[in-house]
Design a binder for these strands. Sequence first.
DNA 1: CGCATATCCTGACCGC
DNA 2: TGCGGTCAGGATATGC
Length: 321
Amino acid sequence: MPELPEVEVVRRGLQQWVVGRGIDDVEVLHPRAVRRHRAGTADLRARLRGQIVQAAHRRGKYLWLPLGQTAPGAGPDAPPNHGGGHPDRPEAIAGEALLAHLGMSGQLLVSDAADPDQTHLRVRIGFADGGPQLRFVDQRTFGGLAVDEVIDLLRPPGPVGRQSRLPRTLAHIAPDPLEPDFDLPWVIARLRARHSGLKRALLDQTLVSGIGNIYADEALWRARLHGARRTEGMRRSELERLFAAVLEVFTEALAAGGTSFDSLYVNVNGASGYFDRALAVYGRAGRPCQRCARPVRRDTFMNRSAFSCPGCQPAPRVPRW
DNA sequence: CGCATATCCTGACCGC
DNA sequence: TGCGGTCAGGATATGC
């Protein structure tokens, strides 16, 4: 359940502890953790060894570390990442990056070499300076690491003419609401043209990235909208309210260091955020709504839960999950 | 093509 | 105490 705020907390940790360091040996303890690296474990290790981490970037729930042979700033390396992406647009190759997704239960931890292996340690990355290792720990192995080609997409969707530099795998992932190039009118137009349910659309990373089940429910509650509303009937003003709520809840969660229900969701030093105390509806079925005191309800949708307030978030006559 | 659903995985938890 | 069933859900493959 790490969503955008939790992943951003991790990105900042990587920025502080890993950027500028040279990778030495990489040990893969569980092949599933690197399954998205199609060329295999040996190729992954070979591509990482000797590389210097240039930066720590994020789009939505994805993280990537551009790689290079020289120290960051010394050569022509990745500028801040901007804009959207589309696989059919002209592109130029701009090096490689270590791509990471935490999935449901993934952690990137900075650990001393002397620290005992974590129970679900999947990948260990050692550095030439002999300092703390970067460890990928993942109980459920939905997440993983890969080395991916970085490309410049010259004409992404939305307003024409922007440039974006991001891993090839992320070409279909939409900008997230915290990116400077996040294009709200474009997102709203696409959402209203869609024939689907509102929460389902919010979770679609090709429309807007970074939103998962927790923050979708929280933003819908703040905007007083029901997740089973049909997208095609939505008013522009309702959607503007919704995305204002998304931005608000992301910002507050980030300030709190992210949300954590248990020890699975932690920063690179293993510490949990405390935003779970601020959740209004998620995981609170039966407890009173903070606005109107009616008991929070729980619906099942896409084989998962959706929490909402029956008073503040009136259900549509014909729900469309 | 657009939209919906099945699938991957492991540990916590619950009822018996 | 253990055992089977259920739940947690991000992204992708598959199906309609």
